[in-house]
Design a protein around this nucleic acid. Sequence first.
DNA 1: AACGTATTTGAATCTCGCTTCAACTAGCAC
DNA 2: GTGCTAGTTGAAGCGAGATTCAAATACGTT
Lengths: 212, 212
Amino acid sequence: MTQRESRPTQRKSKADRRLDLIDAAHRAMIQHGAEGVHLNQIAEEAGLTSGAVLYHYPDLRDLLIEAHHAGMERFYERRMKKIGGISDPAEKLIVTIRSGLPDGPDDTGVRLLCELGGAAGRNRVYATLLTTLFDRQVSMYQTILETGAAHGVFTLAQDSETIARNLVALEDAYGYRIVARHHSIDPDKAVELILDYARLATGNPLRPADRR
Amino acid sequence: MTQRESRPTQRKSKADRRLDLIDAAHRAMIQHGAEGVHLNQIAEEAGLTSGAVLYHYPDLRDLLIEAHHAGMERFYERRMKKIGGISDPAEKLIVTIRSGLPDGPDDTGVRLLCELGGAAGRNRVYATLLTTLFDRQVSMYQTILETGAAHGVFTLAQDSETIARNLVALEDAYGYRIVARHHSIDPDKAVELILDYARLATGNPLRPADRR
DNA sequence: AACGTATTTGAATCTCGCTTCAACTAGCAC
DNA sequence: GTGCTAGTTGAAGCGAGATTCAAATACGTT
């Protein structure tokens, strides 16, 4: 990327290089699949040789796990940042829903998450990562819902955990639809569909028109 | 599996063998991933050599696509069969929801579908297969919802397409959770969560206790 | 400026899966 | 039974990716 001549690969500290590699692994996995990815593809993305990659990660699986972990962390942190400053529960809920969906079919963050769905059935580590992320998102929604209820803005039709789980589930599923390029479900449409449920569950009209 | 001596591989007609191979590919993909699977693994599952597999499918990708296609068809047909005889809309809806979820983490049919989620972002054929399946399931739910509304059993809070899409989306997402062995979301819990939404959307209490 | 070390390379080696194909054989037609 | 054909094997060759490691080198330290 930022390489003067692209001829002599500049050296980096262990920590810096590992961050580069995590990023390179991220890109390579999106192109070739979380399980179909090859060492050389990652090395190429990082602008290194395969030997250098192995020097930092003798076991490639460790790198892949770290890349997934970092991807999830980034995904979650980005959401928290987006909703951080919002105090109105209704607006917060709307923005949260939007931030859980991919920008479009090529959103790299969500693409990586989708890669894991199938592998989780075979790989306990991946299953744990995904499950943990799911539960964290549920908690996040629960907080918003309960705050809204406490302020009298929401009238919850079900307990907050049920609503929160269903909201996260809807997000996940529409994420997959968007990544698969469904002809009539784009990010805006997905938000609308999820909001249709959220309205029933919170008793709030949740008008997204003027916000964001 | 059903082989007397396991020594001489019995010959089969082209059509029969292709069915065997589709089945073998199905099993191999679940064990090794939709994209990480190797020719030899499929051959072994089928009790043949790699040469024999290539004789029937010179391009392995064709076999994989057919296996996925067949898997989806079976999944869909099985659902239709389960709900075929039910006339009461409420019961039909409940049974339909249940039939869209895996029996457990090892349900092979759903496991295969989950494999495709990530690949769909990279592979147009897989994306189309998944999208088509989604739309068919939406239609299925729409029919049930509208029939129920016509009979006065359901009072739809939203248009039938919205409800149907959300129901399918919830099914999909909880399928992933179950496959990933979420500690507190098993098939029964997932049905309950989806029914919680369905109750709001249909205005029907949908008591699953005595049915099924 | 010279040293020492952490990082990276490049080539050699090894492994493994894919591909090809001539030879073999089971089952069908006659 | 004889012959024919389609299905299958097994071995050989090929290529790609993983792995190893000695040599090279960039960079911080002194």
